[in-house]
């Protein structure tokens, strides 16, 4: 790039000025609330001044109800991510290596949920898989017994999440797969690799990072999910999203709600860090290119 230094200096002030507002918003609405949340949940102001206290965290980790909610959140996350990857990876690989009209239709279908608001999906879920839903109707017309509806069970949110997150997972994986060139695959076939050898030695090592990115993305989403667990999941134990809302709104306990929020931050820290790092890296690589 060939910008003169003098021009740079003049533009430096303007640039800073232009980014000031959004940066200030991030600082006051993201960074500051997080710092406050961590501080306020750790510092208790008693009659003899402020002091460090882990009381609210101790409460969370000893409270059976809270721990049950955390456990169901982790369970839902693990199950959803596993199912999602089991579905999204084959679809992404298929879309990478097959061209044609059928593949275009598959891609359109896989991307479609991106354009369905989760609230509509939740409603559709109830009408299809809920009691007396479409599946029951179809089974009934064949004289078969009704299904055990996943509605209001832990499986409800899982199905919703998988459906809702399929497009972005496929899209992220496809972006990763675009790094696997046809020649790289052909070169492997040439030296004698069969389908499985190509999958395990050539494709998976190259999209490993994309799988982690997609996983991080989904994990972060699941830990803050509200609509699906609230509408489709059981009332108790409930996932962290509805739990935090109830603690904040109904129980009116902002300190405990913040404690719960900080705990989700900590659990997701690895994924958040990884997600940010990979985006930053991607960006640096593209800038270098």
């Amino acid at each position: 790039m060939s910008i003169s230094v003098a021009q740079d200096r003049g533009r430096g002030q303007t640039g800073l000025l232009l980014v000031l507002l959004p940066v200030a918003l991030v600082a006051t609405l993201i960074i500051w609330p997080i710092v406050r949340a961590v501080m306020d949940t750790l510092i208790v102001t008693g009659p003899d001044g402020a002091s460090l206290s882990f009381a609210s965290y101790r409460f969370f980790f000893t409270d059976a109800h809270s721990m049950g909610n955390l456990r169901i959140t982790i369970w839902t996350t693990a199950v959803s991510v596993s199912i999602l990857m089991a579905i999204a990876i084959p679809i992404a690989i298929y879309l990478r290596f097959v061209t044609g009209r059928t593949a275009a239709v598959v891609q359109a279908l896989a991307i479609f949920p991106l354009f369905v608001p989760s609230i509509i999906l939740a409603y559709a879920f109830i009408r299809v898989l809920g009691p007396n839903g479409m599946v029951d109707l179809i089974l009934g017309s064949f004289g078969l017994p009704r299904i055990r509806s996943p509605y209001l069970t832990p499986w409800g949110p899982v199905i919703g999440f998988v459906w809702d997150n399929l497009p972005l997972s496929v899209v992220i994986l496809m972006a990763g797969l675009s790094n696997v060139t046809n020649n790289a695959v052909e070169a492997a076939r040439d030296v004698g690799a069969g389908k499985f050898a190509i999958l395990f030695h050539i494709i998976l090592p190259r999209i490993w990072l994309s799988i982690l990115v997609a996983t991080s993305f989904v994990v972060l989403g699941l830990f803050s999910a509200f609509t699906f667990p609230y509408l489709l999941g059981p009332a108790a134990p409930e996932m962290m999203g509805p739990f935090m809302l109830r603690t904040f709104g109904d129980v009116m306990d902002p300190v405990q709600a913040r404690t719960q929020a900080v705990i989700t931050f900590l659990i997701c820290a690895v994924f958040g860090w990884f997600y940010v790092r990979s985006i930053a890296k991607n960006r640096a690589r593209r800038e270098a290119a």
Binding site: I3, D8, R11, G12, Q13, T14, G15, L16, L18, V19, P22, V23, V26, A27, L29, I30, I31, P33, I34, R36, A37, L220, G221, F223, S224, A225, F226, M240, G241, M244, L245, F248, P254, A257, R258, Q260, A261, V262, T264, F265, C268, G272, W273, Y275, V276, I279, A280
Partner: peptide, 30 residues
């Protein structure tokens, strides 16, 4: 443009994505 802290500021927007959103909302709501 080039200015002081450009990359740091730019990446700071990622913090919105790096935390479970609902937790963030709770901290803002309080």
């Amino acid at each position: 443009m080039k200015f002081w802290g450009r990359d740091m500021f730019f990446l700071s927007f990622l913090s919105i994505q790096a935390f479970p959103r609902f937790g963030l909302l709770i901290t803002i709501a309080t």
